[in-house]
């Protein structure tokens, strides 16, 4: 894998500058002086071995954690100074590897809850949620069932639907197709591509899947806490 260090650009929607991160109680930096930029209208994938720091990087981008040093900024504003709850609720949509759904409610209620937290202006949120789930291949009957009664693939799609529910500018996904069959994987990747290329959103996907990297406009690789551009079609 040949990489070059990506420099933050002026037009980047999301930018990282010299970001380092170390887990509390440890003595090793998981991320070491990472700089990268993510632009709207492109699908970005981050690849790397297990334990290379992909998910840690994702959590910093998602505003779930803060960098030890350096800066993560969204539209030019440092997340350290921003209201990160609001950022998570409105500006980004996260598809977690472990789904992280609210388990004691139905699929549709998960979507509605996310829209409520984001302060979505949609009037009929429930109907909007059903439509979104239907678009991802979950019918009304399944949508009304508790999420734990759904299969892993269905839960993954609920997670994706939730990430899209409040119309975020950035979609961040951690292994979003890991639990999906090939056909559904294609459908989902089609959705991500559409979001990036047609709706001009910034899509960031952490993956091991070659198929996912094939549809990416920019492929970034992480190795030993360092990041580099593996491929860029932009």
């Amino acid at each position: 894998m040949t990489t070059t260090t990506p420099a933050p650009t002026e037009t980047a929607m999301l930018a990282l500058r010299d970001v380092t991160y170390r887990y509390p109680g440890t003595h090793r930096d998981v991320l070491r002086g990472i700089s990268a930029s993510f632009t709207s209208g492109a699908v970005h994938t981050i690849v790397g071995k297990s334990g290379s720091g992909k998910s840690t990087l994702l959590s910093l981008i998602a505003g779930l954690d803060t960098a030890g040093s350096g800066e993560v900024s969204f539209n030019g504003t440092s997340l350290a100074a921003a209201d990160r709850d609001r950022y998570r609720a409105r500006d980004i949509g996260v598809v977690f590897q472990g789904f992280n759904l609210v388990t004691n409610v139905s699929a549709v209620q998960n979507i509605v809850l996310s829209m409520n937290i984001a302060g979505s202006p949609v009037k009929d949120k429930t109907e909007h949620a059903y439509a979104l789930l239907e678009r991802l291949g979950i019918g009304r009957e399944d949508a009304a069932r508790p999420v734990l009664k759904l299969s892993g693939g269905q839960q993954q799609r609920v997670g994706i639907a939730r990430a899209l529910s409040h119309d975020p500018a950035v979609i961040i996904a951690d292994e979003p197709t890991g639990a999906l069959d090939e056909k559904t994987e294609e459908e989902i990747l089609g959705i991500f591509t559409h979001l990036a290329h047609v709706e001009k959103r910034c899509v960031i996907i952490v993956t091991h899947s070659k198929r996912v990297t094939q549809i990416a406009d920019v492929v970034l690789g992480i190795k030993s806490g360092k990041i580099g551009v593996v491929r860029s079609d932009r």
Partner: peptide, 16 residues
């Protein structure tokens, strides 16, 4: 705790 973690990850404020 997990439910709270999910809600917080979704952007719900601690106060809410």
């Amino acid at each position: 705790k997990y439910e709270i973690g999910v809600l917080r990850a979704m952007g719900m404020k601690k106060s809410l």
